[in-house]
Amino acid sequence: MYLFIQVNWGTRFIVTLIALPGVYAPQDDTALLAEALRSEVLPPHARVLDVGTGTGALALAAAQRGAEVTAVDASWKAVLTARLNARLAQLPVEVLKGSLLKPVADRTFDLIMANPPYVPAPSTTPGRGAARAWDAGRDGRLILDRLCATAPALLRPGGVLLLVHSALSGEEQTVGALRAAGLSTSVVERRAVVFGPVLRSRQTWLEARGLIQTGQDKEELVVVRAERTR
């Protein structure tokens, strides 16, 4: 069964998306990253990469602005979903299957967007099935650390990385890692949101780990912006 989602991120981008079962549908983190994208000034014919594209919502938002967009996802269902949504929206988006940046390791970009798995999980291994879209090891940094280590090399001079994740996963670590890679880095968006089903199911475990306070039922989402200035 398909899931139909209407995305309305400002008057210039309204689109109805289709999500196949098991594909991460746009949520608060997607919307927050879309806000950061709207604030970016893109050069003409900007080359944009959307990592972990899911339904392709952010890739389509960039393509609607005239960017040359490539989207990557490790899930075949997500790849097929993003390709279908690009066709329905009549927007040119190249959608590739692969792990993080591997399919585009020989390219560079003016803008890289990423909404990776970042939810702390009892298991030290990546999630399976739908959980691949959110489970990221015991500290939530299983994928974040890999992105921070590899994405800077794919940025052109003046290029920007926009990375969204939960503050539970350590925003200071993300900012520090990207600054260490030579990027000018700051948190540009924040939003407090009520725990969804996954975090609610792990509330006791998160409390025991000291990642949240007793009775806490909200998390803060952040968008980290990192620019290659030289």
Rank of each mutant, 00 (worst) to 15 (best):
R132D: 13
L142E: 15
S166Q: 07
Q203N: 03
S39E: 15
R47V: 13
F195W: 08
G54S: 12
G56T: 06
P117E: 11
G170T: 07
L49Q: 12
R138T: 15
L96T: 09
D50H: 09
R65F: 08
D28C: 04
R200H: 01
A151R: 02
L3V: 12
Q27I: 03
I143E: 08
K102Q: 14
S166H: 08
A59W: 03
V15I: 13
A74G: 03
G158A: 15
E219I: 07
A177T: 02
A105S: 13
A136V: 11
R12E: 13
T11P: 02
W76N: 12
A192W: 05
R191M: 10
A130H: 11
V48I: 14
L221V: 13
R202P: 00
A67N: 14
L111S: 02
Q90A: 15
Q213D: 05
W134K: 10
H45K: 14
V160M: 02
P103I: 14
S99Y: 10
V41T: 13
P126A: 04
D139Y: 09
V93P: 00
T30W: 06
R47M: 05
P43V: 15
P152H: 09
R83P: 00
L37E: 10
G54K: 11
Q213I: 04
L206Q: 08
S201P: 01
P157W: 12
R12M: 05
G129E: 08
V72G: 01
S184W: 01
P103Q: 15
V41W: 04
R65Q: 09
G176V: 08
G66C: 09
P21G: 09
F109H: 08
R209E: 10
L144N: 05
S39M: 12
D110Y: 03
L168P: 00
Y2D: 07
A19R: 01
E171G: 00
V194M: 06
R190K: 09
R132M: 14
T11K: 02
V51E: 06
G56V: 07
T174M: 02
D139I: 10
E189S: 03
L80H: 15
A86M: 02
P43N: 01
R200T: 02
V15S: 13
N85L: 08
V193P: 00
H45S: 13
W9A: 09
S39P: 01
R12C: 03
E68V: 09
A25G: 03
A86H: 00
A167Q: 14
V104D: 12
Q64E: 08
R12L: 12
C148S: 14
L206E: 07
F195C: 06
W205Y: 04
L33S: 11
A46G: 06
G210F: 04
V69S: 08
V15K: 15
P116Q: 12
A71T: 06
A63V: 08
G176I: 10
M113P: 00
R202M: 12
A31K: 10
L58P: 00
T214D: 06
T108G: 09
A67L: 04
P103T: 13
K102C: 02
A151T: 11
V95H: 07
D145M: 14
L88K: 07
T81K: 01
L32K: 04
A74H: 12
E94S: 13
E189V: 01
G182E: 10
A180F: 04
